[in-house]
């Protein structure tokens, strides 16, 4: 397989809610095996973009291809097959409230693969520990978890089928810094060993810095720039400057030291 193959191709996307236009003529390419970070101000339509790509919102115009297929024209059965190849973590977890954490993870294993129950249990408890939840979290209901734990449980569910493509909406929001760093590491490792592609909406500068190969900036209803951290730091657009050179950014990226670290990786 071509390492640079495009796994998500968005062309001329337009989405709207009533009279509010969220995206207009938006283009984006995501390459196989990369971690792409989507940044943008609150309400610029990052979550909507994610939902549109996975087919939960119908675009008003434009074309979206995932795995080289146009979802809008794909027959239902093909679509279902495609959907099994990606995992989605929603911004607010969106766990099934009447199932325990372990059952939430097992839903896809049971419905799609009909795995035997003992194996399902093993896989569920493995995923639970991998995402950093305590081992006894499996028997708990979502309402009995803390906000950060719900996020992790959502990630474990997104990872249940070991997807090739992972959509994450603010995965580190609500995690403590240690947990967030462990999360970054987990994503990095999974990405390396499974050649995972990750589409990640995030405001976490540390995450952007640590694991994103490329960053796409959403503003003015479009993706205005796509590039590496270095490109971002050098970009003249005022919002991007504010974002990557603001006081928080300086602290997170450690100014010159941060630049050096970016150099090392690229």
């Amino acid at each position: 397989m071509n390492a640079d193959a495009v796994i998500i191709r968005v062309r001329g996307l337009k989405t709207r809610f009533g009279r509010q236009v969220v995206h207009d003529d938006l283009d984006l390419d995501v390459r196989r095996g990369e971690v792409i970070g989507i940044v943008g101000g609150s309400g610029t339509g990052k979550s909507v973009l994610l939902r549109t790509i996975v087919g939960l919102n119908r675009p008003a115009a434009g074309r979206i291809e995932v795995f080289g297929q146009d979802l809008a024209v794909l027959p239902e059965a093909e679509r279902r097959r495609l959907e099994r190849r990606w995992g989605v973590l929603f911004q607010d977890g969106a766990l099934f409230s009447s199932l325990t954490v372990a059952q939430n993870i097992q839903v896809a294993l049971r419905e799609h693969l009909h795995l035997p129950q003992p194996l399902q249990d093993e896989i569920a408890s493995l995923k639970i520990v991998l995402v950093g939840l305590p081992a006894d979290a499996g028997g708990k209901f979502p309402s009995e978890l803390s906000g950060g734990m719900r996020k992790r449980a959502g990630l474990a569910r997104a990872l249940a089928l070991d997807p090739e493509l992972l959509f994450l909406d603010e995965p580190t929001a609500g995690l403590d810094p240690i947990g967030a760093a462990a999360f970054d590491q987990l994503i990095r490792r999974l990405q390396r060993s499974l050649n995972l592609t990750v589409f990640m909406v995030t405001h976490d500068l540390d995450s952007l810095h640590a694991i994103c190969d490329r960053i796409a900036v959403l503003a003015e209803r479009r993706v205005i720039v796509v590039g590496t951290m270095r490109d971002m730091l050098a970009h003249p657009h005022p919002w991007i400057r504010e974002y990557f050179h603001g006081p928080r950014a300086r602290a997170a990226l450690g100014a010159p030291a941060g630049l050096a670290a970016v150099d090392d990786r690229s």
């Binding site: 249990d121 408890s125 493995l126 995923k127 520990v129 991998l130 081992a135 006894d136 499996g138 028997g139 987990l186 490792r189 999974l190 390396r192 060993s193 499974l194 050649n195």
Partner: peptide, 18 residues
């Protein structure tokens, strides 16, 4: 090597179930 890494990752996750 990438499978080795995967195996190590999984080993971290092997905790006795409650």
């Amino acid at each position: 090597p990438e499978h080795q890494a995967m195996l190590e990752q999984v080993a971290i996750g092997d905790r006795p179930a409650p």
